[in-house]
Design a protein around this nucleic acid. Structure first.
Lengths: 192, 192
DNA sequence: GAGTTACACGGAGGCGGCCTCCGTTTGGCA
DNA sequence: TGCCAAACGGAGGCCGCCTCCGTGTAACTC
């Protein structure tokens, strides 16, 4: 059915610029939200807007790329966390990253969100895998006795989304995010 | 404490234009989402943009006005529904209006949403009253035996928000909304 | 190393939205 | 009727979106 067509190799300069664009977009959207200026992205990447639009014909295409990469990074982080010595520390670090992930992609358009519901979509696969990884990480922390048994992965996720929502218009005040995360982490500790 | 300062009477033309702007904004935001063009709003209202900005210095101010009015209309509708002969019919009509309310204000910026959390904010008061009215209406339908006893008002609300979300980029396809609402209404009927 | 060419680049330019500013108009009052 | 504060309108400056096309160059060949 879906023959894995090799995605044709890019010319060296094209690949460089693509990387630079992704990097610039990450910073720009983190600061300005997903409505951030695409011209600003191009400017920061040191390329013309034409180059940006050739690589990513629409804002959604760029967002999807970033979102996918962000999911994969979280997935990787949960794998590392499972190997780490200190389960509580690993959990804290993961939640922190998850909070920034949610914050960056707050307000992502529904056109992109809908892609998460399509079964054959690679973005949806990343998302599902990421959630699975998160659940494993939480479970390990519970097994180690550093997190309450009755904490559901989905509930904690919602709390983190809540933090992203609540710090929506707090600019790049990462201290605020950390403070709120601290509250959540305290709440997760076993009683006594 | 809060002396109710009379809000100074507007000149006749000013009041006319204000009404026209609210009307135009309602249509425009319903069609284009809350990011719709303010110039388009002014155009439709038949006034200059300067007039729009004098009445509503920011997009949030305009949105708040519309949102507040929409809440109040829902509140009124629930009152009428309590008096109506057919509780099931009243519920259906209310849900329909609620769906269009949610659809219109999808994507409302967090700056406005945060106003809903401020205790002394009139918008928050409208919102709270509306929810209360909705709960009464549902309860009456349950008392009349046309809706399952175990339907929680909050859960039904979430379903309607879900419909608003899912029909986000369906343009002005109201038939889709109606079809989805039909499913919800079917689900609300008592078993047997 | 020189030549070739398809791929990639850049940014000007047209469009439209945002918001301000200020000259003009008008409602309401005496 | 005359006055004037209140209200109006839209030009203009700025910025972001996206396209188009002339220029540049990586990579491959001989």
């Amino acid at each position: 059915m879906t023959e894995t067509t090799t995605p044709k190799p890019l010319r060296a300069d094209a690949r460089r610029n693509r990387e630079a664009l992704i990097c610039a977009a990450t910073r720009t959207f983190a600061e300005q939200g997903v409505d951030g200026s695409l011209e600003e992205v191009a400017r920061r990447a040191g390329v013309g807007v034409g180059t940006l639009y050739r690589h990513f014909p629409t804002r959604d295409a760029l967002l999807t790329e970033l979102l996918s990469a962000s999911f994969d990074r979280l997935r990787e982080l949960s794998r590392e966390g499972l190997e780490a010595d200190d389960p509580a520390q690993a959990l804290a670090e993961y939640l922190r990253q998850m909070a920034f992930h949610s914050r960056t992609f707050r307000g992502v358009p529904s056109s992109v969100k809908l892609a998460l519901a399509e079964s054959d979509n690679p973005l949806a696969a990343s998302c599902t895998a990421t959630h699975a990884g998160w659940a494993e990480l939480l479970e390990r922390a519970q097994d180690a006795g550093v997190v309450r048994r009755d904490a559901e992965p989905g509930d904690v996720l919602r709390l983190v989304y809540g933090i992203a929502w609540a710090t929506d218009n707090a600019g790049d005040d990462t201290a605020l995010v950390d403070r709120m995360l601290g509250l959540v982490l305290d709440g997760l500790r076993p009683a006594g």
